[in-house]
Structures are given as structure tokens and as C-alpha cells.
């Protein structure tokens, strides 16, 4: 609905939009700036927007004090693993719901979504005990399973909405052309829904990366991802601002960069396919 505005009004709206956007972004910016300051200038009054003495010291120290690569790798494995596993389970379900809808398909979807409303804290103890019994505590495979189950309803729902955009006639054509169900899904449906699947994947990797309840409750050291890494930094109050900022930046930058690069697909994904 873009329409031509007078140059004056365009200047005003541009300024206003940029101000609002910068305000929203400012906390992240401030954190990144602080991470490059010395501890002294980080808490200087009045605050220094740009520090006089830039330093990478904080990053070096955080790196030295903790095993960052291990946390990072755990985050990658858990986020990507749970998402891929979720897609594997969800694609057939979404296919069925989108192309062979029954009277209860809608209810089924809503029920799936409602399982996400159960507060994690409410089932924390039982799940902890189950994990203990199964020997899954502090294991990556355990977290992959939990996060997959947590995000499964969202994955199914997103895929469902994307699949529904694909005309059923094309799948029928494939069936007429002699494609088996497997071929229909592999050669026709999946390639056609690839943008939607990519969006779903991205959003769920981000959700899994940022999950900070189960990843903390169910891990101690071996399988702990970056959310646990940052929690370990903020718990003892001895740490200073600049180092805390550096650790925070190290926890969020990988996903921030991924998110920015894939912004277009992500925005599509963010709308859960429900808004066009």
C-alpha cells in the first residue's frame, strides 16, 4: 500500500521510523558496545557511548575461562538436530492434514498447539525423574528429543499452512503419473514446499537455540548449550559488565547473524504461514 508522499512528509516518517527502529535495537547495540569497553569505562558515569580504549580483552577472558566451543557445538547439535528430527515426523503429518483433511483435522491441530500451553515448570520434576531413569540427563540426545517434542506442534502447524497453499491437483497429477505416495512426497510436495520448509526450519532452529528452561534443568556440563553457558556467567555476581556483555554477545551472535542473513525466509516463517 505504498503511496507517494510529499518530500516533507517522507522525511518526517523516515526519521520517525528510524528513531523507533533504533530504540528497539538499542539494548542489543549497547550490549555489543559495552563488550568492547574496559570494565572501568563500562560503568563510567556519565556513560560513554563510544569507549576511548577499545579492547578485545573481555572476549579473550571469557574464552579462556570457559569452554566456549563445546557450548557452541552443543547448541548447534541440539538446535539443528531437534529441528531436523521434528521435520521428519511433521512432514508426513502435515501432508495428511493438508491434503486428506477430515472433520477433526482442525481440532487435532488445535490440540497439538494446546500441548504447548502446558507450563514446562509444571512437569519439570517428573521429566527430570524420567530422564534420570533413562540415563538421558546431561545428554544431547535427550535435549534433542525434548526440544523436538516442544516444537513439534509449531512445525506441524507451519508446514500445514504452507502445504495448504499447494494445489491438490498437482499431487493428483503425480498420482495419475504413476507416483507412489513416497515419490509424491519426495519428488513433488517437498521441492514445491521448499521455501516453506526452509522458513519452518529457520524459525525452529532459533526457538531451539534460545530455549532456556529445559536446556538448563536437564544439563550440567557435558551437553550444556549456550543458554546454560550464559546462565553460568550471570549466576555468580562477581562478573563485571564488560565481560558479561562479551559472554552475552558470544551467546547470541551466531543466531543473530544467521537470522539476519535469512531475514526474508524468516519473516515468512514468523507469520506461521497464517498471514499473507
Amino acid at each position: 500500500m505504498a503511496r507517494a508522499l510529499s518530500p516533507r512528509r517522507q522525511l518526517v516518517t523516515t526519521l520517525a521510523a528510524w528513531t523507533v527502529a533504533l530504540l528497539i535495537f538499542f539494548p542489543v547495540l549497547w550490549m555489543i558496545l559495552t563488550s568492547f569497553k574496559t570494565e572501568a569505562s563500562a560503568v563510567a558515569m556519565p556513560p560513554q557511548f563510544l569507549s576511548a580504549d577499545w579492547t578485545l580483552e573481555n572476549y579473550a577472558e571469557v574464552w579462556a575461562r570457559s569452554d566456549y566451543p563445546r557450548f557452541f557445538w552443543n547448541s548447534v547439535v541440539i538446535a539443528v538436530g531437534s529441528t531436523l528430527l521434528g521435520l521428519l515426523v511433521a512432514i508426513p503429518s502435515a501432508w495428511a492434514m493438508a491434503f486428506v483433511p477430515g472433520q477433526r483435522t482442525r481440532d487435532l491441530l488445535m490440540w497439538m498447539l494446546s500441548t504447548k500451553m502446558m507450563p514446562a515448570v509444571a512437569v519439570m520434576v517428573p521429566l527430570y525423574l524420567i530422564f534420570q531413569r533413562l540415563g538421558l540427563l546431561d545428554s544431547r540426545i535427550g535435549l534433542v528429543i525434548v526440544l523436538m517434542l516442544m516444537n513439534l506442534p509449531i512445525i506441524v502447524w507451519m508446514l500445514y499452512t504452507y502445504f495448504k497453499e499447494i494445489p491438490g491437483e498437482i499431487l493428483e497429477a503425480a498420482r495419475m503419473d504413476g507416483a507412489s505416495l513416497w515419490n509424491e512426497i519426495v519428488h513433488v510436495l517437498t521441492p514445491m514446499a521448499l521455501p516453506g520448509i526452509a522458513s519452518t526450519m529457520l524459525l525452529n532452529i532459533i526457538l531451539a537455540w534460545n530455549e532456556a528452561f529445559w536446556t538448563i534443568v536437564l544439563t550440567t556440563t557435558k551437553a550444556a548449550p549456550l543458554s546454560a553457558f550464559i546462565a553460568s556467567f550471570s549466576a555468580p555476581q562477581g562478573l563485571f559488565y564488560a565481560k558479561l556483555s562479551a559472554a552475552s554477545a558470544m551467546a547470541i551472535l551466531p543466531i543473530l547473524i544467521l537470522g539476519w542473513f535469512s531475514q526474508k525466509q524468516l519473516v515468512r516463517g514468523l507469520t506461521f504461514g497464517a498471514v499473507k
Binding site: 491437483e169 493428483e172 497429477a173 498420482r175 495419475m176 514445491m192
Partner: peptide
């Protein structure tokens, strides 16, 4: 099943891949 009938179909929307 459709594939086993030896028939070919042209759809209203063409249904091209």
C-alpha cells in the same frame, strides 16, 4: 489405484510441477 489404470489426465489448472 490411479497409477495402475493406464489412464492419463489433463487438469483444469494444468497441475504442472
Amino acid at each position: 489405484p490411479p497409477a495402475k489404470r493406464g489412464l492419463a489426465m489433463v487438469f483444469q489448472s494444468y497441475a504442472l510441477y
